[in-house]
Protein backbone atom coordinates (compact mmCIF):
# COMPACT_ATOMS: atom_id res chain seq x y z
CA UNK A 1 0.00 0.00 0.00
CA UNK A 2 1.43 3.35 -1.02
CA UNK A 3 -0.65 5.46 1.32
CA UNK A 4 -1.82 5.30 4.92
CA UNK A 5 -5.30 6.23 3.68
CA UNK A 6 -5.35 3.00 1.64
CA UNK A 7 -4.50 1.00 4.77
CA UNK A 8 -7.38 2.78 6.48
CA UNK A 9 -9.78 1.85 3.68
CA UNK A 10 -8.59 -1.75 3.74
CA UNK A 11 -8.90 -2.12 7.52
CA UNK A 12 -12.36 -0.53 7.53
CA UNK A 13 -13.39 -3.10 4.91
CA UNK A 14 -12.30 -5.78 7.39
CA UNK A 15 -14.72 -4.26 9.89
CA UNK A 16 -17.51 -4.50 7.33
CA UNK A 17 -16.60 -8.12 6.57
CA UNK A 18 -16.76 -8.74 10.32
CA UNK A 19 -20.36 -7.55 10.31
CA UNK A 20 -19.84 -4.08 11.82
CA UNK A 21 -22.54 -1.45 11.31
CA UNK A 22 -20.73 1.18 13.38
CA UNK A 23 -17.15 2.33 12.85
CA UNK A 24 -15.15 5.04 14.57
CA UNK A 25 -12.09 6.28 12.71
CA UNK A 26 -9.64 8.50 14.56
CA UNK A 27 -6.75 10.15 12.78
CA UNK A 28 -4.13 12.34 14.37
CA UNK A 29 -1.51 13.78 12.06
CA UNK A 30 0.71 14.71 15.00
CA UNK A 31 0.15 12.98 18.31
CA UNK A 32 3.35 13.72 20.25
CA UNK A 33 5.48 13.22 17.17
CA UNK A 34 3.57 10.21 15.90
CA UNK A 35 1.17 9.96 13.01
CA UNK A 36 -1.62 7.76 14.34
CA UNK A 37 -4.93 6.32 13.28
CA UNK A 38 -7.30 3.98 15.04
CA UNK A 39 -10.38 2.07 14.00
CA UNK A 40 -12.98 0.84 16.46
CA UNK A 41 -15.86 -1.30 15.29
CA UNK A 42 -18.78 -3.29 16.64
CA UNK A 43 -18.14 -6.31 14.42
CA UNK A 44 -17.97 -9.88 15.63
CA UNK A 45 -14.45 -9.53 17.05
CA UNK A 46 -11.72 -12.14 17.37
CA UNK A 47 -10.69 -14.64 20.01
CA UNK A 48 -7.21 -14.74 21.54
CA UNK A 49 -6.07 -17.51 19.30
CA UNK A 50 -6.86 -15.53 16.18
CA UNK A 51 -5.34 -12.35 17.65
CA UNK A 52 -2.04 -14.16 18.10
CA UNK A 53 -1.95 -15.35 14.51
CA UNK A 54 -3.32 -12.31 12.80
CA UNK A 55 0.02 -10.68 11.95
CA UNK A 56 1.28 -13.72 10.07
CA UNK A 57 0.15 -13.52 6.44
CA UNK A 58 0.48 -17.25 5.82
CA UNK A 59 -1.40 -18.38 8.87
CA UNK A 60 -4.09 -15.76 8.69
CA UNK A 61 -5.05 -16.11 5.07
CA UNK A 62 -5.76 -19.78 5.62
CA UNK A 63 -7.64 -19.51 8.85
CA UNK A 64 -9.58 -16.34 8.38
CA UNK A 65 -10.69 -15.25 5.00
CA UNK A 66 -12.11 -12.07 6.46
CA UNK A 67 -8.74 -10.75 7.58
CA UNK A 68 -6.15 -11.64 4.95
CA UNK A 69 -3.09 -9.59 4.12
CA UNK A 70 -4.28 -6.21 5.31
CA UNK A 71 -3.06 -6.51 8.91
CA UNK A 72 0.42 -7.86 8.04
CA UNK A 73 0.86 -4.91 5.65
CA UNK A 74 0.06 -2.36 8.35
CA UNK A 75 2.15 -4.27 10.87
CA UNK A 76 5.08 -4.01 8.47
CA UNK A 77 4.74 -0.32 7.52
CA UNK A 78 4.30 0.79 11.15
CA UNK A 79 7.30 -1.27 12.33
CA UNK A 80 9.44 0.09 9.49
CA UNK A 81 8.70 3.65 10.56
CA UNK A 82 9.39 3.36 14.25
CA UNK A 83 5.82 2.81 15.27
CA UNK A 84 3.58 -0.12 16.02
CA UNK A 85 0.20 -1.68 15.56
CA UNK A 86 -1.98 -2.45 18.58
CA UNK A 87 -4.98 -4.73 18.19
CA UNK A 88 -7.54 -5.45 20.88
CA UNK A 89 -10.55 -7.58 20.27
CA UNK A 90 -13.12 -9.77 21.98
CA UNK A 91 -15.59 -12.11 20.35
CA UNK A 92 -18.99 -10.44 20.24
CA UNK A 93 -17.63 -7.05 21.31
CA UNK A 94 -15.81 -5.75 18.27
CA UNK A 95 -12.27 -4.77 17.47
CA UNK A 96 -10.00 -1.83 18.28
CA UNK A 97 -6.90 -1.26 16.28
CA UNK A 98 -4.38 1.55 16.48
CA UNK A 99 -1.49 2.16 14.12
CA UNK A 100 1.28 4.63 14.87
CA UNK A 101 4.17 5.85 12.75
CA UNK A 102 7.00 8.18 13.71
CA UNK A 103 5.73 11.26 11.94
CA UNK A 104 9.05 12.34 10.49
CA UNK A 105 10.42 8.88 9.72
CA UNK A 106 11.68 8.55 6.14
CA UNK A 107 9.79 5.30 5.66
CA UNK A 108 6.46 6.56 6.89
CA UNK A 109 4.02 6.31 3.98
CA UNK A 110 2.25 9.56 3.13
CA UNK A 111 -1.34 9.90 4.33
CA UNK A 112 -2.58 10.24 0.75
CA UNK A 113 -6.13 11.02 -0.19
CA UNK A 114 -8.04 10.39 3.02
CA UNK A 115 -11.11 12.26 1.76
CA UNK A 116 -11.34 9.88 -1.17
CA UNK A 117 -11.08 6.94 1.23
CA UNK A 118 -13.97 8.20 3.36
CA UNK A 119 -16.09 9.16 0.36
CA UNK A 120 -15.70 5.83 -1.42
CA UNK A 121 -16.25 3.94 1.81
CA UNK A 122 -19.48 5.75 2.65
CA UNK A 123 -20.92 5.34 -0.85
CA UNK A 124 -20.03 1.65 -0.81
CA UNK A 125 -21.55 0.98 2.59
CA UNK A 126 -24.97 2.57 2.79
CA UNK A 127 -26.59 2.17 6.19
CA UNK A 128 -23.27 2.19 8.04
CA UNK A 129 -22.92 4.53 11.01
CA UNK A 130 -19.51 6.09 10.47
CA UNK A 131 -17.86 8.54 12.85
CA UNK A 132 -14.52 10.25 12.25
CA UNK A 133 -12.44 12.27 14.68
CA UNK A 134 -9.81 14.06 12.64
CA UNK A 135 -7.10 15.65 14.76
CA UNK A 136 -3.94 17.61 14.27
CA UNK A 137 -2.34 17.99 17.68
CA UNK A 138 -5.14 19.49 19.80
CA UNK A 139 -7.32 20.70 16.91
CA UNK A 140 -10.20 18.43 16.02
CA UNK A 141 -12.99 17.96 13.50
CA UNK A 142 -15.76 15.48 14.17
CA UNK A 143 -17.79 13.99 11.36
CA UNK A 144 -20.80 11.78 11.97
CA UNK A 145 -22.60 10.16 9.04
CA UNK A 146 -25.83 10.20 11.05
CA UNK A 147 -25.86 13.98 11.16
CA UNK A 148 -25.86 13.95 7.34
CA UNK A 149 -28.44 11.19 6.94
CA UNK A 150 -30.70 12.81 9.53
CA UNK A 151 -30.86 15.98 7.45
CA UNK A 152 -31.53 14.09 4.22
CA UNK A 153 -34.40 11.87 5.29
CA UNK A 154 -34.89 8.17 4.84
CA UNK A 155 -34.31 7.49 1.17
CA UNK A 156 -31.36 9.70 0.33
CA UNK A 157 -27.83 8.58 1.10
CA UNK A 158 -24.22 9.12 0.06
CA UNK A 159 -24.72 7.34 -3.26
CA UNK A 160 -26.40 10.43 -4.73
CA UNK A 161 -23.92 12.41 -6.83
CA UNK A 162 -25.06 15.67 -5.26
CA UNK A 163 -24.41 14.27 -1.79
CA UNK A 164 -20.99 12.77 -2.39
CA UNK A 165 -19.85 15.86 -4.25
CA UNK A 166 -20.93 17.86 -1.23
CA UNK A 167 -19.20 15.39 1.10
CA UNK A 168 -15.97 15.64 -0.86
CA UNK A 169 -15.88 19.44 -0.66
CA UNK A 170 -17.03 19.52 2.97
CA UNK A 171 -14.42 17.05 4.25
CA UNK A 172 -11.59 18.74 2.33
CA UNK A 173 -12.57 22.09 3.78
CA UNK A 174 -12.89 20.87 7.37
CA UNK A 175 -9.65 18.86 7.31
CA UNK A 176 -7.85 21.89 5.91
CA UNK A 177 -9.19 23.95 8.80
CA UNK A 178 -7.96 21.41 11.35
CA UNK A 179 -4.51 21.40 9.77
CA UNK A 180 -4.40 25.15 9.95
CA UNK A 181 -5.67 25.23 13.55
CA UNK A 182 -3.19 22.50 14.48
CA UNK A 183 -0.31 24.52 13.07
CA UNK A 184 0.52 22.37 10.04
CA UNK A 185 -0.07 25.10 7.48
Amino acid sequence: MKEISLHILDLMQNSIEAGANWILLEVNEDEDGFFTFSITDNGRGMNEDMLKKIRDPFVTTRLTRNVGLGIPFVDMTTAQSGGRLIIKSKPGEGTFLKASYLRNHLDRPPLGDVVNTVKVFLVGNPGLHFVMHYKVRQAEFIFDSQSVIKRLGEHIDFSYPEIYSWLDAYLKQEIDKVREAGGLK
Binding site: Q13, N116, V120, G124, P161, S165
Partner: peptide
Protein backbone atom coordinates in the same frame (compact mmCIF):
# COMPACT_ATOMS: atom_id res chain seq x y z
CA UNK B 1 -16.12 -2.90 -7.58
CA UNK B 2 -13.70 -5.34 -5.91
CA UNK B 3 -12.52 -3.74 -2.64
CA UNK B 4 -10.54 -6.50 -0.96
CA UNK B 5 -6.92 -5.85 0.01
CA UNK B 6 -5.92 -7.00 -3.49
CA UNK B 7 -8.38 -4.62 -5.16
CA UNK B 8 -7.36 -1.66 -3.02
CA UNK B 9 -3.64 -2.32 -3.59
CA UNK B 10 -4.32 -2.44 -7.35
CA UNK B 11 -6.12 0.92 -7.32
CA UNK B 12 -9.80 0.13 -6.63
CA UNK B 13 -10.33 3.32 -4.68
CA UNK B 14 -9.31 5.45 -7.66
CA UNK B 15 -11.51 3.37 -9.96
CA UNK B 16 -14.48 3.79 -7.69
CA UNK B 17 -13.89 7.53 -7.42
CA UNK B 18 -13.61 7.73 -11.24
CA UNK B 19 -16.90 5.82 -11.59
CA UNK B 20 -18.62 8.15 -9.13
CA UNK B 21 -17.24 11.23 -10.90
CA UNK B 22 -18.33 9.98 -14.30
CA UNK B 23 -21.82 9.16 -13.06
CA UNK B 24 -22.03 12.64 -11.55
Amino acid sequence: IGMGTCGIAAGAREIMAAVLDELA
